[in-house]
């Protein structure tokens, strides 16, 4: 018998604290698989965010920093400038990256900082119990948009990958993927691997936006949540490569 699927080495053998069906666990595993496949466990340094993934430093078996809310790209910048030959990644949610930490991610991208950011977009604040995020869809009900996100009041959700892709130069990479079924999980892993390789080859800043679920705060079963992601999030957040073109 050949083992074709098991826990990756770069993932600690612990139970995640995430709610049942939360896709953070899938994304963690994909990152760990990529670290194993690229054989970079011993030179990778990760940065955990504030939000549901705050304990990510307990889950990846690599050197880790815990960052203040939204500051992971700045912390990763500091690490990478000290250890340019190491591989530095940050793991951030949508409140962390696209709200309180928007300046840090924009400028890390604008500098072409050679770091990799895994940006988990589940359209809501999970850890604090389901408040409106900068990526909450129009009309989506949350605990701070009880009648649904109103454009007049709160504006439109931010498309981070498109925005970053529009303001930086070549060498930088922005891709949006999803983890709602095995086919897309395969594509997500490929994008994460390419984002790490982009850093290793010294080309520039890489961000992979991963559309993710929050069954608990969306008020859905895990299976319904995947369906909601596919039906509601994909039309507003199209999957694809938003990297800047040559000559931008």
């Amino acid at each position: 018998m050949k083992v074709i699927f098991e826990k990756p080495k770069s993932l600690e053998d612990v139970t995640f604290h995430y709610c049942p069906g939360c896709t953070h666990g899938i994304i963690h595993r994909l990152i760990a698989e990529v670290i194993d496949e690229l054989e970079i466990q011993e030179k990778t340094i990760g940065v955990a965010p504030v939000g549901c993934a705050v304990l990510a430093y307990d889950y990846f078996d690599v050197d880790m920093h815990e960052a203040a809310h939204g500051r992971a790209p700045a912390v990763a910048t500091g690490i990478k400038r000290v250890h340019p030959k190491n591989v530095v990644f940050a793991y951030q949610g949508d409140g962390d990256l696209a709200s309180i930490g928007m300046a840090e991610v924009v400028h890390a991208a604008a500098r072409g900082e050679k770091i990799t950011i895994i940006f988990v977009n589940n359209a809501i604040y999970g850890m604090t119990g389901g408040q409106m995020a900068p990526t909450t869809l129009v009309g989506q009900v949350t605990n701070t948009s009880p009648t649904g996100r109103d454009v007049e009041h709160s504006g439109y959700p931010i498309r981070v990958s498109e925005m970053l892709g529009s303001l930086v130069g070549p060498g930088n990479s922005m891709k949006r993927v999803s983890v709602h079924d095995p086919k897309h999980i395969g594509q997500a892993k490929k994008a994460i691997k390419e984002a790490f390789i982009n850093q290793i080859e010294g080309k520039g800043f890489s961000l992979v936006e991963v559309l993710s679920t929050c069954p608990t705060n969306w008020g859905k079963t895990p299976v319904e949540a995947l369906k909601w992601l596919e039906e509601k999030m994909l039309p507003y957040y199209p999957l694809g490569d938003f990297s800047p073109k040559e000559g931008v």
Partner: peptide, 26 residues
């Protein structure tokens, strides 16, 4: 060495946090 003009004081101190944690005099 490295001099980096950050986008804000907030970013600068967090770069210090990263660099210091990575072992540097910063």
């Amino acid at each position: 060495g490295v001099f980096l003009q950050a986008e804000s004081e907030i970013a600068a101190i967090n770069m210090v946090y990263g660099a210091s944690g990575a072992g540097a005099r910063v």
